[in-house]
Design a protein around this nucleic acid. Sequence first.
RNA 1: GGACAGGUGCCAGAGUGGUCGAAUGGGCACGAUUGGAAAUCGUGUGUACUUGAAAGAGUACCGAGGGUUCGAAUCCCUCCCUGUCCGCCA
Length: 435
Amino acid sequence: MIDLAHFRKDPAFFRAAWSDRGVNVDVDALLAIDVQVRELKLQGETTQAELNGASKAIGQAAREGKDVAAAKETARTLGDRVRELDAKRAGVEQQLVERLAVLPNPCLAVVPKGKDAADNRVVSTWGTAPGFAFAPKAHWDLGPALDIIDFDRGAKISGSGFVALKGMGARLSRALVAFFLDRHTRRNGYTELAVPYLVQPQMMYGVGQLPKFADQLYRCPDDDLMLIPTAEVPVTNWHRDEILDLAELPKQFCAHTPCFRREAGAAGIGTRGMTRVHQFDKVEMVWLTPPERAESDLLTMRGHAESLLQELGLHYRVLELCTGDTGFSSCHTFDLEVWSAGTSSWLEVSSCSDFGEFQSRRANLKFRREKGGKPAHLATINGSGLALPRCLIALIEANQEADGSVVIPEVLRPYMDGLERITKTGVGGRGSGAG
RNA sequence: GGACAGGUGCCAGAGUGGUCGAAUGGGCACGAUUGGAAAUCGUGUGUACUUGAAAGAGUACCGAGGGUUCGAAUCCCUCCCUGUCCGCCA
């Protein structure tokens, strides 16, 4: 949610910002509705004040034994008037709220202007693409050959877009999660949370998933709950409706959860294998921080995500998204893309975003700069650290050998009972594909 | 899932139709007292919105949403949550 007061003061800023994002907004209509709401509110409250005064007088008179029939009659008329104004106001206000709810966060001035992904800026590139003396395979060949990824059974059980892991594939996935969480909690000061995967619709609204992206969410209508598309949803809402102290900021949380996405409309485009699936595991980092720190904290957090890829030895690049490609709630986003050696393409494994106060206004996240001071909205920042299936893809593709086996990076071996290599041969024991 | 009991301010806890944004106690903040502290005393201590240059004024909020009434924390309805017991169960 944008800052309404700011919008009234400087509509030109928002007009330009939304235009940069490629969103067409009738700013004048919005302003007009806002004025109307406030006029009706003022009238309604003034009338209510009158009614309150009249009611008080009636109570007084009644206690003194006076006749209050006539006074009641006028009060009743006032009451009708209040209800009338209130209903009118509510109607107009709902229009305003509905319109505002689908307007994106203005990007920061540093964000490169652009139309779509083609205009994103490459900030840096780390490492080099691995070279092979043979034709490297894509994960959709490697995985099934090693019997660690099972596309057919995933689809059999839940339909297209669902993937299953088996044996050392499942183990490797678990190792990555454990490795990520350990780095965040032990090295970078994050507090780990284990959160519900089904949440109430308001939580989705709080981070900006609703109302605009309802078609991307799985829902359980009988219970009015929705499956989270990212841990961002429950974690960002952790301190909802609270007022934090400056001294306890920034809050740094991490959480591992499965993520559920309908990916409506995405079928057929770059969906081969498990680069785009309906359910995947991800470790998410979320910061709650004072707004003035947000941008520097964003860089810190991005560094945390990058260090994981570096430790895994994976070639990646950092993109700064342009205005046209930046997500709805974000005002500044960096994407981390890892190299897929099997398909010679970049895969997004992390998106690190500064949301400013946009989510805080929606989720009611506040803090106090000093005791007795006025509550102010927090800034929220989040980023993947990291998204599993694509890391797993990059990992096995980059570390494959001519015989189809996959070398496990040093940092993961402690999580794999010291296993150095995943091979097809062998059943049971160390080095087993079946685990 | 069934039966009871509850949900009030930072916390505890009063309040069963008007004088209640809400007693009292605790906590916290500031001040007095003290060599310093404890104790004691005094003052203060919610959020949001509207209006106003400001001081201030107004409105709403006692789990949520409806209803009755001139007037609701208080009465009625629906729902949610918590506790206890029973049932079921990973």
